[in-house]
């Protein structure tokens, strides 16, 4: 554990709390992609299988994994049942099969070991890298977002960004590199660059998140 990794995880935790706060206070999931949230449930369930099948890492690790599985399922419940009328499927139109299919194929080709757990782990890494795309696509389509939603996305992007110095640190401190996680992580962070540009130049200057027409 190093400071980048810890800050990254805390940022991930914060992003979920911001999202829950947004849904609860506005009593609406407007502007949130159900598809992205559903993909995160798949990501967490396939990656954290090791909670039941793998080796014990730490209490921190287990508690965080349980939180991510629990909160992502709860968000789906809020979106699909509790605040269902506030979700508009007509603007959430990204085809998830274009993300799930290639992730599965990549996982079958590039994994660390030909076992079910390892293939699902690799799949979850590839899928997480692109799971934000339906959300970003929706943002692109509507051209605007509530400020709280942009804070959610910023925290989520920061989590991924912070994992990069964490890997650099780990390379120098214990000589380990996890190429699958690093390459997928770089792609994932790259997807946020456009968003961050608008976030820094507009939202943090007190303006509304609006994309140029």
């Amino acid at each position: 554990m190093n400071v980048f990794r810890l800050l990254g995880d805390l940022s991930h935790l914060a992003s979920i709390l911001i999202l829950l706060h947004k849904i609860q206070t506005t009593r609406s999931c407007r502007g949130i992609s159900f598809k992205t949230q559903a993909l995160y449930v798949v990501v967490f369930l396939t990656r954290y299988l090791d909670l039941f099948l793998g080796d014990w890492v730490s209490l921190y690790n287990t508690a965080m994994k349980l939180f991510f599985i629990g909160s992502s399922c709860y968000i789906l419940y809020l979106m699909k049942l509790r605040f269902r009328p506030t979700h508009d499927p007509a603007i959430d139109t990204f085809r998830v099969e274009y993300l799930v299919g290639p992730s599965l194929i990549l996982a079958l080709i590039f994994n660390y070991k030909y076992t079910l757990v390892e293939i699902l782990w690799a799949f979850s890494i590839y899928l997480e890298a692109v799971a934000i795309m339906p959300q970003l696509f929706m943002l692109q389509r509507t051209g605007e977002a509530e400020t709280i939603t942009t804070h959610y996305l910023a925290a989520l992007g920061a989590y991924r960004g912070l994992y990069i110095p964490n890997w650099i640190y780990r390379y120098f401190s214990d000589g380990t590199v996890d190429p699958i996680a690093v390459i997928a992580g770089l792609v994932q962070t790259g997807l946020y660059l456009d968003f961050f540009y608008v976030y820094f130049t507009r939202v943090l200057q007190g303006q509304k998140f609006e994309l140029p027409a």
Binding site: Y112, K113, D178
Partner: peptide
């Protein structure tokens, strides 16, 4: 690393 690295990251 290589064969089945320990996945200690989240």
């Amino acid at each position: 690393e290589g064969a089945a690295a320990t996945h200690d990251e989240l």
